[in-house]
């Protein structure tokens, strides 16, 4: 059974349909990338999956439980889903290590010392250990995003959501982050990533979902979707992405 099953998900904002009946599955160990033009509903879909945005209708079945139903412990669900934001969203009054340990101590109820050890281990894995005592304002964009990824991963989530993780970065910093996410992909971390970055999509995905105007148009492996798709929307999107790069 899929880790996440989305069935006929609809989201309306002020009467406007942003998601028009989206259905999608994400299996454990799978890395899926969601692409599409700006405003097509990608980030909204991602936020509906951990209920940061409440869907208008439809089902989100996480580990066999429909989390859109009343009475579900939403905070528990969110604690099992890691989320990485476009603009890093590090708590800027806390050091890198404190950013990582805060959730471990307050949500996972892990003792400070153990949390600190876990943070050190995870930061070391992405080359951020030496920056552990720095504040976000003292880091480069790439370092901030790597810290944000560690913050999400340290909670041992069942799945990692990434919302445009490289789009606020210059090419050099973007490569740093792609390398880290690629390592997660090779470690079979379950991921669902929204991006415009074809380079990132190619190196971190088992399959790519293409969305347009609130509906899923296609799902395939990167090579076939990039080079063989006959759909004019997909062709046009990848041409514009290539031009942009």
């Amino acid at each position: 059974m899929a880790l996440i099953q989305v069935r006929n998900l609809v989201k309306k904002f002020d009467g406007r349909d942003v998601l028009k009946g989206v259905s999608i599955d994400l299996y454990k160990g799978q890395a899926k990338v969601l692409m599409g033009t700006s405003g097509c509903g990608k980030s909204t879909l991602l936020r509906c999956l951990n209920l940061l945005v409440q869907p208008t209708s439809g089902q989100v079945i996480f580990k066999g439980e429909d989390i859109t139903l009343p009475g579900v412990d939403v905070r528990k669900v969110r604690g099992e889903i890691g989320f990485v934001f476009q603009h890093f969203a590090l708590y800027r009054h806390l050091t890198v290590e404190e950013n990582v340990t805060l959730g471990l101590r307050k949500i996972k109820k892990i003792k400070s010392r153990e949390a600190s050890e876990k943070a050190s281990y995870e930061l070391n894995r992405v080359g951020m250990f030496e920056h552990r005592n720095k504040y976000p304002a003292q880091l480069s964009g790439g370092q901030k995003q790597r810290a944000a990824i560690v913050r999400a991963l340290a909670m041992d989530p069942d799945v990692l959501f990434l919302d445009e993780p490289t789009s606020a970065l210059d090419p050099q910093m973007s490569r740093e982050v792609v390398t880290v996410i690629n390592r997660l992909f090779l470690d079979n971390i379950t991921m669902f990533c929204v991006t415009h970055d074809a380079f990132l999509a190619k190196y971190i995905s088992d399959s790519i979902v293409f969305m347009d105007d609130g509906v899923i148009v296609a799902e395939d492996i990167a090579e076939r979707l990039f080079y063989e798709s006959a759909d004019p929307r997909i062709k046009q999107f990848f041409m514009s992405v290539a031009d942009h790069r």
Binding site: R75, K76, R78, F83, Q86, L90, R92, G103, K106
Partner: peptide
């Protein structure tokens, strides 16, 4: 976005207020 990150991590509103 920091507040959204706190919600996404599973913090309660009161915890987000106190800690973030």
């Amino acid at each position: 976005e920091e507040l959204e990150a706190a919600r996404a991590q599973g913090f309660k509103h009161s915890e987000t207020f106190r800690l973030i």
